[in-house]
Design a protein around this nucleic acid. Structure first.
Length: 178
DNA sequence: CCCTGATTCGC
DNA sequence: GCGAATCAGG
């Protein structure tokens, strides 16, 4: 793969948004994180701008959680709604964590399944999966937003504890998994 | 062990 | 210019 204008543009964009080199490499495909880092340096983009107080952003969510939710309802029998913060993607190494911050809002429509813990997906791309990351697919493979759960899977299998349960459940009993 | 970016240096 | 190998660090 060579650095076409298009790929360079995407690189610049993602880098400025705070994604790590490995994640950008996964997005671009065909290149290693080292290649990305090398390119970033050659382009002299190393210093990602910001001096922002990145961290503080992910915590002001719960207040308006209900209104900003865009997450998804899920989990068998459970009646929880996951709210993914729509934190503005931006600068800083911690932006990603903020982006993935999740807020659980308790709701009771049906009987809550006390033992069901809704996982916080790390939303890894295919190339980011490793031996111990949950490989539960989320979304449409043909869609840009397609990703994998990515949570800790342990040595026991390909899925995290939560998705392991779903994986071995009759499809008819599954609800939306993410 | 997982991950991060930075640097070096042969190609 | 490119990126694998390596380094230093969390």
């Amino acid at each position: 793969m060579n650095w076409t204008d298009e790929r360079v543009e995407l690189l610049k964009k993602l880098w400025s948004e705070g994604l790590s080199a490995s994640q950008i490499a996964a997005q671009l495909g065909g290149v290693s994180r080292n290649a990305v880092i090398g390119k970033v340096h050659r382009l002299k983009l190393s210093g990602r701008g910001k001096t922002s107080t990145t961290q503080a952003r992910s915590k002001k969510v719960n207040t308006t959680a209900a209104s900003t939710m865009r997450g998804n309802v899920q989990s068998s029998g459970a009646s929880q709604t996951m709210v993914r913060t729509s934190v503005t993607k931006s600068v800083g190494a911690t932006a990603l964590q903020a982006e993935y911050a999740v807020e659980a809002v308790a709701r009771t429509v049906l009987k809550p399944a006390a033992d069901v813990v809704v996982p916080i997906s790390r939303r890894l791309s295919l190339l980011q999966l490793s031996e111990r990351t949950c490989k539960w697919p989320v979304g449409d493979p043909l869609n840009e937003d397609f990703h994998f759960c990515g949570n800790e899977s342990g040595d026991s299998g390909p899925y995290c504890t939560y998705h392991s349960k779903l994986a071995f459940q009759p499809a008819s009993e599954r609800r939306r998994a993410r």
